[in-house]
Design a protein around this nucleic acid. Structure first.
Lengths: 247, 247
DNA sequence: CTCGATCCTTGACCCAGATCAACTGGACCG
DNA sequence: CGGTCCAGTTGATCTGGGTCAAGGATCGAG
């Protein structure tokens, strides 16, 4: 199951998430120290990486693939509370129990550190602590933005918001067509989308069909999405779509 | 408007939030440095402390009173994304624009620092940076817990969840009656509750009445709440109410 | 004491999205 | 080639909470 170390990123310097992950700010000597304690793990689509409530003895970054953070009530209602894309950080220094389930939705590779060496390193390396604070503040902003989506947006707006977010994060990797066109593959099933949006999968399906019918998106198969006009999608999402974005 | 400095907390050592705020971990010498750059500001109930989009030239902690963080769409729909109680931190080091409105819901006193001296101090004082990371991670957990409330809970469960949260945080200040009884004053109007819960104020009012009729809570006036059985309230909130809490 | 303002409650009706249920279309397997 | 999973779509119906509207309670000002 675990991919042999040498297959992935022989050196941090060549790592695809080098400039976005917790290690982004590290100097070469700091990187060398991290390199000594890091190890890779990979998981298959559908596998649960961490169970809510379990003891977590490692932290790490998503190198490739997509995972979700979900919370579940006793009666089975579930809410996705985070989407983990490459460079996102998993785990909380200074706490043992995991508060959420972490599930791989695609095959995924993670760059891990055992918790105590990482915490030690963090205390000695302001660059890491600082970057982690920055990333956590960003996640907090994202979580709060999502609260607006969950609390106040209609189903149609929710779907459009999700497509915007996935498309935008994905687009930083694959530069897309000209003038506001965007193309990407959904890494989520309709059910996972529903869990993210606080909807049922039927409503997700209906609204996807409606957006297609209205020409806001095109679908090839179930998962491949083409957004002919990003501005229009953002408008449907209820975000102020004023140009500022393309800058 | 601003309360003269000497009125509030002549020395940090006597500050009511000394052990919970960003400064919690500071040694006496570090505290002395903070003391030099801190200043107090107070605001009246209803006043907007920070406007979304404005330049923010200070950060600070809530010393007393309650404030809210809200996000608003162009068409006026608003969602509260955070509740700021004493010891909570406002502002983001390393960013200029404020992403949300911050509004005082009661008279409030804040302990402020101009941003650049604070950032400088933070870089030189790991105790502060570390504590801020810890607080931010806690807020992220709280935000994610709230996503479950917004996305999956019914109106009745939402109200009960809010009462639990307010009561619990408030209870750490005023220890309450025996065996699961809890008494507190709501610091929020029905409308503010609705904005927090993603509901309308009418629904909030109806559900409050329903909880009263069902004996889950008692009301004296509009704002004074008596919870005879906290376990029952938590059950209504849909949280696993198993005993663990009273430990 | 009345006036207005603010906050809250309650009722009547409606609709977006949930629920229940049937069906399609690929992928995989014997 | 049937068979049987899934993942997704679509239809019919139901309902929780939104919307609109009409008061009620409290309070400070004049």
């Amino acid at each position: 199951m675990n991919v042999p170390r040498h297959k992935i990123a022989p050196h941090c310097a060549e790592c695809p998430i080098r400039h976005k992950a917790v290690c982004a700010r590290c100097e070469t000597d700091e990187l060398a120290r991290l390199e000594e304690i890091k190890y890779y793990r990979s998981f298959e689509a559908g596998q649960t990486i961490i169970w809510s409530g379990d003891k977590m003895d490692f932290v790490g970054s998503v190198v490739s693939g997509v995972a979700t953070l979900t919370q579940t009530m006793e009666d089975g209602r579930t809410q996705m509370v985070g989407l983990l894309l490459p460079s996102d950080f998993v785990g909380r220094p200074g706490r043992d129990g995991a508060p959420y389930d972490v599930v791989a939705t695609t095959d995924i590779v993670m760059c891990c550190f055992r918790k105590s060496p990482f915490e030690k390193m963090m205390n000695e390396t302001p660059h890491i602590a600082h970057r982690l604070l920055e990333m956590t503040l960003d996640e907090l902003d994202a979580a709060r933005e999502w609260m607006l989506v969950l609390g106040r947006k209609t189903a149609r707006e929710k779907i459009a918001s999700l497509l915007c977010i996935i498309g935008r994060r994905d687009a930083s990797l694959t530069p897309d067509g000209p003038n506001g066109t965007m193309v990407f593959d959904l890494p989520l099933t309709r059910e996972a989308m529903a869990d993210y949006l606080g909807l049922t999968l039927e409503t997700v399906s209906r609204q996807m069909s409606a957006l297609r019918k209205d020409g806001v998106i095109q679908l090839e198969g179930k998962r491949h999405v083409i957004v002919p006009d990003l501005g229009q999608l953002m408008e449907v999402a209820g975000d102020d779509s004023d140009g500022g974005f393309y800058g």
